[in-house]
Amino acid sequence: MANVAWTANHTGWSDFILVGLFRQSKHPALLCVVIFVTFLMALSENAVLIFLIHSDAHLHTPMYFFISQLSLMDMVYISVTVPKMLLDQVTGVNKISAPACGTQMFLYVTLAGSEFFLLATMAYDRYVAICHPLRYPVLMSCKVCLFLASGCWLLGSVDGFMLTPITMTFPFCGSREIYHFFCEVPAVLKLSCSDTSVYEIFMYLCCVLMLLVPVTIISSSYLCILLTIHRMNTAEGRKKAFATCSSHLTVVILFYGAAIYTYMLPSSYHTLEKDTMVSVFYTILTPVLNPLTYSLRNKDVMGALKKMLTVGPAFQNTLK
């Protein structure tokens, strides 16, 4: 019996306890409602954006194809963490099994990594559209777009397959409480009773590489874009180019800023409260903000939305 107890305490296959957001809140019921409403907003906004892009012929371009991929990632991204957190609060059960924790971790890391590369792909798409407009149909053909989108998902999954198995095979002993609302790699590593310093260095280098490659592509693309915009003769052309790029830059700054804080800053900069707030921002709020950023400031998307809202009632009147 003692041997069995020791094994249960020193392996990753017994249940973890997610402390979550609600234990730190003075009004957990109100917070639960706010997060639930935010979750529904994120799902509906991204679903509407995907529907508009696929239903309106004017939005059948590479830029909007990549935006639809971003919306799909955001829908899955928020669905990986929030439903489990809300269900735990409603039922009062905060446990998560090790396989479920590993699955949540893998999906989260995969989606985060995929979004890194997708944002770089979107920057490259804007570079080709502005700097090489005549060659744009060839350089960003349908096959190329599908290849680039598939590559983003594949590279993200490689990151998930590397980090998740190693993290979950560390021995965990003592407290099984994860001071987080989902199974994030740094939060789970804190429970390990073995030396994880070498792995943390490996994870740091991996994250640097995952961030360095996309950031290099994004920086190079926008440097070329700025030079091209500077050479434009018409003010209208400059305004259109800036409007096209500003939405993407906003999303890049928000997402990469949070990722750099979480995975690249030394532990001395981290506190439980800061880590939780940053995680809430890029896990829950970012999927809500992204579709608003791309739709409210985009005439094509707003035009497609207005067309859908006007065609719907007209179609119902013809049925009557």
Rank of each mutant, 00 (worst) to 15 (best):
V93P: 11
N94Y: 12
K95E: 14
I96P: 00
S97P: 03
A98W: 11
M105I: 04
F106V: 04
F106T: 00
L107K: 00
G113M: 03
G113V: 01
S114T: 04
E115P: 06
F117D: 00
L118E: 01
T121P: 02
Y124G: 02
Y127N: 05
V128G: 06
H132K: 14
K143E: 05
V144M: 15
W153F: 14
W153V: 10
W153N: 06
G160M: 06
L163H: 04
L163K: 09
T164Y: 01
T164M: 04
P165Q: 07
P165G: 07
I166A: 10
T167I: 02
T169N: 15
T169G: 15
P171S: 00
S175Y: 13
E177R: 10
I178K: 01
F181V: 03
E184N: 15
P186C: 08
P186F: 04
A187R: 03
K190A: 09
S194H: 14
S194E: 14
D195K: 13
L205P: 08
L205T: 13
V208M: 12
V208R: 07
M210I: 08
L211Y: 13
V213K: 01
V215A: 15
I217E: 04
I217M: 11
I217L: 12
S219M: 15
S220P: 08
S220F: 07
